[in-house]
């Protein structure tokens, strides 16, 4: 009945379970990289070897596909959350968001001033990149010199700042904040799923298993053409209204005496009747759509309205009434199967 709803729900629950697994797998949340004696952050906290960081990327892309086509979350950029999650893995579960947040906030504060300088878009992005790198260096000095920010997606971050401002200009601050929040939440979820026990086990079992399994899963699930979870919410008014109307009809049908309903006035369905009915339905414009035989009801049948060959000279002729097409209505409205 509400299949898309259950599919979306199942995806959501599965993701939540994986996130919990990832959370359980986290050793410490606030440890600074310098306390790990030179061991990479991802290995110290989650037991994920730096050489295996590449292996979790397909998992990230898989989750992004799930979030987009099953749940329908809007984020800045397509695979931005995946790249951000990878940076989180290298920096730490709490330090990562702090680094990301501060660099994006610095970009956001400076962006309006930069926009006033009337730079080109490339110039604007270039300045943003230098600013974000400056922020990263400053954070390294202030927080921890061992903080691994080299995998931080600086360019992606600059693009996020730019997208933020455009969204703000277009749809106002709330929509922009909502999408920024979505991006952030997807990256956090992706981060914890990447380090859950199941993912780590798959990676440890064989280096080929993870990319192959996720690739196959994306190929299968990527064919999903149904409604997204967010769209069920969006179009729910249509559904509720239909249900209300159906219930009203049922009520009124029950109220009417059953005897009146037993004698419906159904005309006999013959080909002649169909042609007649189609003629009656046709708009009363003379010569518009001539139906002489049953064949004319076929939708692939050529219409009888005289067609004029495309005329490229028309663009130079005065506009009103320029097209040599007769002023006849040539658009069919099809409301039910019988109209075809």
């Amino acid at each position: 009945m509400k299949r898309p709803f259950f599919i979306g729900l199942a995806v959501g629950i599965g993701l939540a379970a994986l996130v919990v697994l990832g959370l359980l797998n986290t050793e410490s949340f606030l440890a600074m990289p310098s306390s790990f004696d030179g061991i990479a952050t991802s290995q110290a906290i989650w037991g994920l070897k730096p050489s295996n960081l590449l292996m979790v990327l397909p998992l990230g892309s898989f989750l992004v596909v799930l979030a987009r086509s099953f749940i329908g979350l809007r984020a800045f950029g397509l695979f931005t959350p995946m790249l951000i999650a990878l940076a989180f893995l290298q920096i730490g579960p709490v330090m990562g968001p702090i680094v990301l947040g501060s660099s994006v906030i610095v970009g956001m504060i400076v962006a309006p001033a930069l926009l006033k300088l009337r730079m080109t878009r490339v110039g604007f992005l270039g300045v943003l990149i230098s600013l974000i790198v400056l922020t990263l260096v400053a954070l390294q000095i202030v927080l921890d010199t061992q903080l691994q920010v080299d995998a931080f997606p600086v360019v992606v971050c600059a693009l996020v700042v730019e997208r933020w401002w455009r969204q703000w200009e277009k749809d106002g601050p709330f929509e922009a904040a909502r999408i920024a929040f979505n991006t952030f939440m997807i990256s956090v979820v992706v981060q914890f799923v990447m380090v859950s026990h199941i993912a780590l086990m798959l990676i440890e079992a064989s280096p080929l298993l993870m990319p192959a399994a996720t690739g196959l899963a994306i190929a299968i699930l990527g064919r999903y053409r149904g409604l997204r979870l967010s769209e069920i919410h969006r179009f729910a008014p249509i559904w509720l209204e239909r249900r209300r109307i159906a219930r009203d009809e049922e009520m009124s049908a029950q109220a009417v005496l059953p005897g009146l309903l037993d004698t419906p006035d159904v005309p006999e369905l013959t080909l002649e009747n169909t042609v007649l009915a189609a003629r009656e339905r046709a708009p009363p414009i003379e010569g518009m759509w001539v139906i002489d035989s049953v064949d004319d009801l076929n939708s692939s049948r050529r219409r009888r309205v005289p067609q004029v060959a495309p005329d490229s000279e028309v663009q130079f002729v005065p506009r009103s009434g320029a097209s040599k097409r007769p002023a006849k209505h040539n658009a069919w409205i099809v409301r039910s199967v019988e109209d075809v």
Binding site: F5, R225, G226, L227, W239, R243
Partner: peptide, 20 residues
């Protein structure tokens, strides 16, 4: 080729289907 009348959500075009 007709949508299922018992499921009005079936009549709605979603983004995935639109992209297809």
């Amino acid at each position: 080729g007709l949508p299922d009348p018992s499921n009005p959500l079936d009549e709605i075009l979603g983004l995935n289907m639109r992209n297809a």
